[in-house]
Write a protein that binds this DNA or RNA. Structure first.
Lengths: 151, 151
DNA sequence: CATCAACAATTGATGCATCAACTATTAGAC
DNA sequence: GTCTAATAGTTGATGCATCAATTGTTGATG
C-alpha cells in the first residue's frame, strides 16, 4: 500500500489536474480541448485525411466526423476528395481561420503560461519528458495485457 | 510561438496521456476513473456526505448522485440520513466491498506501476510535486479570470 | 411562528465520446 | 474480370458529465 501510494497519488492527481485544466480552459477560451487539438494539428499540417487526423489526435473516428462537420459549417475548414482515392476525405484550414487561430494563440499562451507559473525552463523540459515517458509506458502496457498476460 | 511551444506541448501531452491512461485503465480494470476516485475516497474516509464527496472528488453533484445510486444498487455502499439533518445523505462502504476494493488494489497497483516504469522514487516525488503545483496554478488562474481580467 | 434565503440532493435536457453497424470505394487473389 | 477483404467515413445507440430547474429541509429574521 505505502509502496504504491505515491504512484496512485500521481495517477489521481493527473486525473484531477487534467480535468480542472480542461474545464477552465473551455470556460476561458470557448473551445473544447478536442477541438483545440484538432485545430492545432491542422495548423501544423496544412492538409490531412480524416483518418490520419483521427490517428494522430487519438479521437474516435465518429467524433472526428462530427467535429469536422461543425467546423466546415462554421467555415473554419474545407473538406474535399481527390481523384486518385474517392474514399479518403482531405481536410484543410481556411486561410482566414488560420490567421484567427494564430491570433487566438496569444490568449491561449497566456492561459497556459499562468498554469505553468513558477516552473523554470529546465523544469518544463523535464516535466514534458516525464509525460512522454508515461505516455510510452501506457501504450506498452496495453499491448502486454492484450497479449494475454492479463488474468 | 517558440517561447510558448514547450508549454503548449506540455498541455497537449497532458491531455493525451490522461486520455490514454483513462481508457486503458477502464479497459483493464472495468471501472471508470470517476468511480475509482469515489471509491478511493470512500476507502479512506469511512463516512462522508454526498456534498463533501462531490467537493473533494470534484465531480458534478448530479454525476455523484447517479454513481452512488448504482453503487448502492450493486451493494457496494450504503446511504442513510441522520436525525439532526434530514438534508444531508451520508455514504459508507459496505464491509465486504472494502475488502474487495483493497484486494483489487493489488491489480491496480500493478497497472499503475507499469505506467510509471523507469521512474526513480525521487523522480516520482518530483513528478507529483509538479502536478500539484500545476493544480494550484490552475485554481488560481480561474479566480483571476473570473475577477474580470479576462477580455 | 411565518417567511425567506441557504443548502442538499435529485431529475431532465444537452453535449460529447465511444462502440457497433452500415455504405461506399479500392486493392488483391484466383 | 469477378469476388473478397480492407479501408474511409458516416450514422444510430449508449453512457457519462454538466448545467439548469425542482423538491425538500434547515436556519435566521422579523
Amino acid at each position: 500500500m505505502t509502496a504504491c501510494s505515491v504512484r496512485l497519488q500521481i495517477f489521481l492527481q493527473l486525473q484531477a489536474v487534467n480535468k480542472e485544466l480542461c474545464s477552465k480552459f473551455e470556460a476561458c477560451l470557448g473551445a473544447s480541448t478536442s477541438r483545440v487539438e484538432i485545430l492545432h494539428y491542422l495548423l501544423q499540417h496544412e492538409e490531412v485525411t480524416q483518418s490520419t487526423l483521427q490517428r494522430e489526435v487519438n479521437i474516435d473516428a465518429a467524433a472526428v466526423t462530427r467535429h469536422l462537420k461543425q467546423l466546415e459549417l462554421a467555415g473554419t475548414i474545407v473538406r474535399y476528395k481527390k481523384a486518385d482515392d474517392q474514399r479518403a476525405t482531405w481536410v484543410k484550414l481556411e486561410e482566414e481561420a488560420k490567421r484567427h487561430i494564430e491570433q487566438s494563440y496569444s490568449e491561449k499562451s497566456q492561459f497556459v503560461k499562468e498554469t505553468l507559473d513558477g516552473f523554470s525552463e529546465a523544469e518544463l523540459e523535464q516535466f514534458l519528458q516525464m509525460l512522454s515517458k508515461v505516455s510510452k509506458n501506457v501504450s506498452r502496457v496495453t499491448k502486454n495485457h492484450l497479449g494475454g498476460e492479463n488474468k
